[in-house]
Amino acid sequence: MLYSEKVMDHFTNPRNVGEIENADGVGEVGNARCGDIMKVFLKIENGIITDAKFKTFGCGAAIATSSMATEMIKGKTVEEALGLTNKAVVEALDGLPPVKLHCSVLAEEAVKTALADYYDRNGIEHNIDVNCDGCCESCARH
């Protein structure tokens, strides 16, 4: 398994590890049976993500994609963050081994789930589509 230097950097020095108390949006995807769980916490003020944190149980790629995804949405508007794709996360990490692409999907879904939670809490209608049904195959299908 060969990881890029960027992946190893985000794995060994992950950015934004932790939890946010009184977060405005929280999203958790994956399950322990599959070997990956990502939990993303967002602080959102006036439609802007002022802070993002994560906790992840998973492999090197899962930790690195969580770190990168939270970096990429900090300072962005909610709408901009909704445009985050797993492809963009992979590119920002200078690529992932093919068997690890599902980790980037999980990162995208964790962010979207947290944003959906934010909308729900504020009574804002949305059609955020999250595919993680807690089953390994839903990631493998991407």
């Binding site: 399950n31 322990a32 049976r33 599959c34 070997g35 790629a61 899962a62 390994c136 493998a140």
Partner: peptide, 21 residues
Amino acid sequence: ACSSASLEPSHVLLSIGVPAE
């Protein structure tokens, strides 16, 4: 599982009754 492409953890550990998680 992350050391394999199958997303399944070790068949040996599963066979002796270690739960996947």
